[in-house]
Amino acid sequence: MDEKQILEGIRASQVESYENLIDVYSSYIARVTFKVSSNRLTKEDMEEVCADVFVKLWENRHKLTIKEGSLKAYLGAMTRNHVLNKIRAKGHYELLPLEEDLIEYATPESDLMAKESDDLINELVSALPEPDREIFIRRYFYMEKLSEIAKHIGINPATVGTKLFRGKKKLEQLLKERGECYE
């Protein structure tokens, strides 16, 4: 069953389509949950988040406006938001300075542009000197707390914050030099 059939079946309240959705996307949802939680949730909490994502999708099946080709992105964003809500509820959440909660649904053109942008950002982050590169990756890709990063690298948490600030400014400058928009 392909994505279009799954979506149509779910909108039509077909349990078989819902089961196929779970079969196809459960490992993806689990990986996203694990990555975003960054060891801030227990195994049971992560399992609950995964189940909640599927239940919430089913409960809102009649309101779904997912475009074909966007289901995986939709589920990933939904999972990420459920994980962050769970972390907030448990009191283990530290607000990120990046505006990561804005989600735009993809088109083939935007996918290509995003891939090019991701490649450029990965290239620029990879060019950062150590430990700045590791700090940046741990903070913005693995969502670790400043205190966790500081402990792992063996430096003061305030220094981690300063390095992140300077790293963002450096990346902003490099993106502008290459003619990329930075917001």
Rank of each mutant, 00 (worst) to 15 (best):
E104A: 03
K63C: 03
K35A: 07
D111S: 10
M46G: 03
S27R: 11
D101E: 11
T33V: 07
D2L: 05
F54I: 06
E48N: 14
V49K: 03
S126E: 15
A106H: 06
S126C: 14
I29C: 04
D118W: 14
L98C: 09
R166N: 05
L21G: 12
D52T: 13
T33S: 09
N20Y: 12
S27H: 11
R178V: 02
E48V: 10
T159V: 12
I22R: 10
E134G: 06
E3N: 14
L41I: 08
S126P: 08
V160K: 05
E104Y: 10
A150T: 02
R31E: 04
T42F: 02
L175E: 00
R139T: 06
I87N: 04
K56I: 07
K56G: 05
E99S: 10
A12G: 13
N85V: 04
E177R: 09
N156R: 07
C50Q: 10
N81E: 14
K163R: 13
D2Q: 08
M78W: 08
L171S: 02
P108I: 15
A77M: 04
Q173D: 11
L64I: 11
K168T: 01
L120I: 15
P97M: 02
G167K: 01
P129F: 03
H62C: 01
L41C: 12
H92Q: 11
M143Q: 05
G9F: 06
E144H: 13
E148D: 15
V55P: 04
V125E: 04
H82G: 02
M1I: 11
E134D: 13
M113C: 08
K169Q: 11
S26Q: 12
P157K: 00
S26C: 07
K56S: 12
V83T: 05
V24M: 02
F54Y: 02
T33K: 02
S17M: 08
P108T: 13
P108D: 03
A158W: 09
R31Y: 00
K176V: 07
N122W: 13
S27E: 11
T107I: 08
I155F: 01
V125S: 09
I153A: 03
R138L: 12
I6L: 06
L95N: 00
R31N: 09
Y25I: 13
L128C: 07
R133Q: 15
L75C: 13
K43H: 09
F165A: 05
N85S: 12
L175W: 01
R138Y: 02
I121A: 04
D2R: 12
L174H: 03
E144Y: 10
L175R: 03
H62K: 15
M1L: 10
E100P: 01
V49Q: 02
E134K: 14
N39F: 07
Q173G: 01
Q5I: 15
M113A: 11
I66R: 01
M46S: 08
K170F: 02
D101M: 06
L124T: 07
S70K: 00
A106G: 03
T162E: 10
N20G: 06
N122Q: 14
L98M: 15
F54M: 09
S37N: 02
L112R: 15
T162A: 05
Y140A: 08
N60W: 03
P97D: 08
Q14N: 08
T162V: 08
T79M: 07
L102C: 04
